[in-house]
Design a protein around this nucleic acid. Structure first.
Length: 572
RNA sequence: GACUGGCUAGCUCAGCUGGUAGAGCAACGCCCUUUUAAGGCGUGGGUCCUGGGUUCGAACCCCAGGCCAGUCACCA
């Protein structure tokens, strides 16, 4: 690793501190009795409360003026100014703590502990007059220095902001230090989860945990991640949903269960999709989807008030109001409303015609239900900004949903759409095991035709249903998408601390030379290949090849492994 | 996957029709006891994303590739 000038200097400083007997990473507790936020909030009202304070934080800026200095420290995302005078922290003749340690050996980014008292400067800034100073952690990397100014009119201006989205996502710790306003987003997300948890717990439903590693994946239409358990020597999948397990618990006799679940779907990424995401799923016995709609609008309305003290949320250009009751449309009504066409009585032929007229593109494999869904997705969903329930979906799209009590060809399902996106999916669950088996079999047929998202038949789940599951309503709520709305975020990555990113590969080929470099570049592109093939492609003589590959494996650039299938090389 | 834009110092960015790299902050040295994007004087710091090509000469032009972002497509 090539270190920058500043990194080298800080490493040297670390050594010097140790040499002079200052531990740059002391073990003992530094007792903190106040936070920056606390002082700033209360100093004006109770100035005498802060005469003997002890506070720790990261050094964010320094203004040294000879034998006195101003600096800022930041704790929990809040900055406060500190004032350090040489003769206050160094009472005797020995001025090392100020002249050497503070001025020379502390840097922006170091974590320090101070003791002192709060006061106001002549300019009126609440500050801490330091009487004692201690290094708690030496920082070895220079921090981006972001400056914020408030001008005479009270407008905030930021200079040298740390804005590169890639760096912010990859180094979230840095982002949190330097752009503390993003902390609010994550606090809101946590509040949202707490609010929902509180609501469901208060109703007496049990929060449960079910397997993430599943031998069969089910409960949604998606491609899974596949993994392997060594001892059992079996394939396991990361769950795409927990639905089938929660329903087993309903069979087992719980009246209501819910789980905040990380689900994993091996599909494309976009500003609305991360390969792992969070859903809360809830199943309640003896209820149907109508009850669930009422319960959910109550729950989300409450959550909105918990977060914003209001039912209204600003999202981009729009103000979204979660106040009950939300609009309700059947899918057919919604399509009629937005296109003027009543498709409720149409057969597949007529639907195709209609889709064509509406410029909704279809492919040959799509059946009736899928066509309806396409038209809805294209012509209605994006138009629905305010929270809206869409009910009564075509049966083909919903293999776990109970057939509609009175409408042929439909199921008892609703989705809540908000800001043009689905945030909730719910239905009256199938509890007729014979019906459920038939639906699974239809899915199997789809799978055989090449639909790689078709559901798999889960024999154990069917066995559970055969013992009898009470009539049940279930719902899944996308926590990430709901968080996006609640925090006015434009991308799912803004509501995840650590969104999935491509690995950070800097081409290390530069460290190599000649033959090694050429071989490594080929290997890096292929990832893994047969040793013989790589040798062939390199076009090197036996001796040169041997030398190059040995250098690469020694340097950790390549790994050779022997299996039954032959010799393989892998980029390291 | 397609299109558009981007990649230059630790951070934010400039760099004209190709002439061999610059500013502010940060860093280093000196001065400075209530400053606040503190200030003053001085100094150092770069694989200009990578690899090829054109050229006397490439950060800049051409080709290939990488990564990121946005939009669209796919996908719930």
């Amino acid at each position: 690793m090539q270190l920058s000038e500043q990194e080298l200097l800080r490493r040297k400083t670390r050594e010097e501190l140790i040499a002079m007997g200052v531990d740059p990473y002391p073990a003992e507790t530094f007792d903190v009795n106040v936070t920056a936020a606390h002082i700033k909030r209360n100093f004006d009202r109770r100035p005498n409360e802060y005469t003997n304070l002890s506070i720790a934080g990261r050094l964010m800026s320094r203004r040294i003026m000879g034998s006195a200095s101003f600096a800022e420290i930041q704790d929990s995302g809040v900055r406060i100014q500190i004032y350090i005078r040489r003769d206050d922290i160094c009472e005797g003749e020995d001025k090392t703590l100020y002249n050497d340690i503070f001025k020379k050996k502390m840097d922006i980014g170091d974590i320090i502990g101070i003791k002192g008292y709060a006061f106001k400067t002549e300019v009126g800034e609440i500050s801490i007059h330091v009487t004692d100073l201690k290094l708690l952690t030496k920082s070895l990397r220079p921090l981006p220095v972001v400056k914020e100014v408030t001008d005479d009119e009270g407008n905030k201006r930021t200079y040298d902001a740390f804005t590169d989205p890639e760096q912010r996502y990859r180094q979230r710790y840095l982002d949190l230090i330097v752009n503390p306003e993003i902390r609010k987003t994550f606090i809101q997300r946590a509040k949202l989860i707490n609010s929902i948890r509180e609501f469901l717990s208060e109703k007496g439903y049990l929060e449960v945990e079910t397997p993430i590693l599943q031998p069969l994946y089910g409960g949604a239409a998606a491609r899974p991640f596949k993994t392997h358990h060594n001892t059992l020597d079996m394939t396991l999948y990361l769950r795409i949903a927990n639905e089938l397990y929660l329903k087993r618990l309903i069979v087992g006799g719980y009246d209501g269960v819910f789980e905040f679940a990380k689900d994993f779907r091996n599909e494309g990424m976009s500003r609305f999709h991360n390969p792992e995401f969070t859903q809360v799923e809830l199943y309640v016995a003896y209820k149907d989807y109508n009850w669930m709609m009422n319960t959910m609008e109550e729950m989300i309305e409450k959550a909105t008030i918990d977060l914003h003290k209001d039912t209204k949320v600003q999202v981009g250009e729009h103000i979204i109001d979660f106040k009950r009751p939300w609009k309700r449309f059947t899918m057919f009504e919604a399509i009629k409303h937005f296109t003027g066409i009543d498709i409720s009585e149409m057969d597949e032929e007529a639907l195709r015609e209609t889709a064509k007229k509406l410029e909704v593109s279809l492919d040959e494999t799509m059946a009736k239900g899928k066509i309806i869904d396409e038209i809805f997705g294209e012509k209605c969903e994006p138009m629905l900004t305010q929270p809206t329930f869409i009910t009564d979906y075509p049966v083909e799209m919903s293999p776990l949903t109970k057939k509609h009590r009175s409408k042929e060809g439909l199921v008892e399902r609703f989705e809540a759409i908000c800001n043009g996106k689905e945030i909730m999916n719910s239905y009256s669950e199938i509890n007729d095991p014979v019906d459920q088996r038939e639906r699974f079999e239809e899915q199997l047929a789809l799978g055989k035709r090449g639909d790689d998202e078709a559901m798999i038949l889960d024999e154990d789940f069917l066995r559970a249903l055969e013992f009898g599951m009470p009539p049940t309503a279930g719902v899944g709520i996308g926590i990430d998408r709901l968080s996006m709305i609640m925090t006015n975020s434009n991308s799912i990555r803004d509501v995840l601390f650590f969104p999935q990113m491509r690995p950070e590969i800097k081409s290390r080929a530069a460290e190599l030379s000649g033959d090694e470099k050429e071989v490594f570049e080929k290997l890096e592109k292929a990832g893994k290949m047969e040793l013989v093939d790589l040798k062939e492609q390199s076009g090197l003589s036996g001796k040169k090849w041997d030398k190059a590959i040995k250098a690469l494996t020694r340097g950790g650039f390549a790994k050779v492994s022997k299996t039954e299938k032959g010799l393989f090389v892998e980029a390291g």
